[in-house]
Amino acid sequence: MALISFMINGQPWKGQVEAHETLLDLIRDKLGLTGTKKGCDSGECGACTVILNGLSVNSCIVPALEVEGKEVLTIEGLSRGEVLHPIQEAFISEGAVQCGFCTPGMIMSTKALLDSNPHPSKQEIRQALAGNLCRCTGYGRIVAAVEKAAKMGGDDLAGNDSREISDKV
């Protein structure tokens, strides 16, 4: 048991965490942020993808204690109330969502990709999403959504959210 504090979706959180707790369990069970999904609990499906200090990670294999002092962005931190992030808009309009269980992880992987590479090729998109399994869509609509999001967001996409978050830090 140890007291940690970190930034979650731009807000500070402080609380007790146990050594065996993962970041996924922490954000789902203690913070109630259930948008991040547990699909395999082994880092093999990507449903639990969040962005930790700017990098996408499988939150199910990150020890919760490790996020002390860090910044975590989850699916809940992407939209601003009713205003969706362009990636979310694109996932809706391109038909990239079916059962939706992989969707939050897919969107977070997409966000990490576009932050570092605002205009990826199709192949780069597929490579970037290889760690996110989807059983419903066959990925085609998802790739289309990422392409559309890249067009919608352009170069600005990278700056937007991280800027807002760092302002609050």
Partner: peptide, 9 residues
């Protein structure tokens, strides 16, 4: 190797 998420860790 693996995936972006794994390679980041």
């Amino acid at each position: 190797m693996a995936s972006v998420q794994i390679r980041n860790r």
